[in-house]
Design a protein around this nucleic acid. Structure first.
Lengths: 121, 121
DNA sequence: CGGCATCCTAGCCGATACTG
DNA sequence: CAGTATCGGCTAGGATGCCG
């Protein structure tokens, strides 16, 4: 069985746009429905797989692991597995990932302000 | 036309996630493949429809107009149509949209740094 | 010029079952 | 505990053609 699966988002389409638009570059890495949430959850430090599942109850196992793999392939998240029984796996932000935290906070601030605006008409 | 889609529990859960995660709130507004690019292109001022098409050559007409409509519905972009022949339509950022520009710039900065990091290993 | 409607496909995503 | 494998529905999004 050939494993054609490419986890990184970079080799998919829109490579050209990515070169000319840095915002697209970012969106291709954290633009999915789940990846930004996951990064946001890891802002406070390393998290176990089960911790992430509990922190984001509505995500399915498949989407969580898929997103984590993509984030790992894009070098935003690092996976550390201890060879013990039962397995002990933690995920934490890489240097690049950590640099995203201020951005996430800025997004969160904007979200609050935007919500205010909408409520006030 | 049968509309199978009714009120889905899943969609309600997504709404819940939006309330508890401000980052998700943001991603739901600018997280698509195109919307952030469009906003980024409008950072320098109002743009005509045809200008946007030329600025983002790889986007299809459908996606451009669809994204613009969503952005308009989310009050990030304002559409101004002059009732002349031929039509003259401009799009520009709302107050909330303008507040996104610093975020976009921060994303652009991060993209450059992240790219550097990947190249250096 | 600035759209909208339709058809169609790739792949995202959820559900379920199984593994080391 | 931390995953993998597979089926299948849904929808995002491309191609094409038409309209005020």
């Amino acid at each position: 069985m050939t494993k054609i699966k490419e986890n990184s988002t970079l080799n998919q389409n829109k490579g050209l746009a990515e070169l000319t638009c840095p915002v697209t570059y970012v969106m291709n890495k954290i633009g999915g429905h789940w990846k930004s949430i996951i990064i946001y959850q890891m802002r406070t430090g390393p998290k176990r797989y089960s911790e992430l599942r509990r922190a984001i109850p509505i995500i399915t196992e498949k989407m969580l692991i898929q997103s984590l793999k993509q984030l790992e392939a894009d070098h935003l998240v690092i996976r550390k597995a201890e060879p013990v029984v039962p397995p002990f796996v933690t995920y934490f932000l890489s240097d690049s990932g950590v640099e995203l935290i201020p951005l996430m906070n800025a997004m969160a601030d904007w979200a609050v302000q935007d919500n205010q605006r909408q409520l006030m008409g």
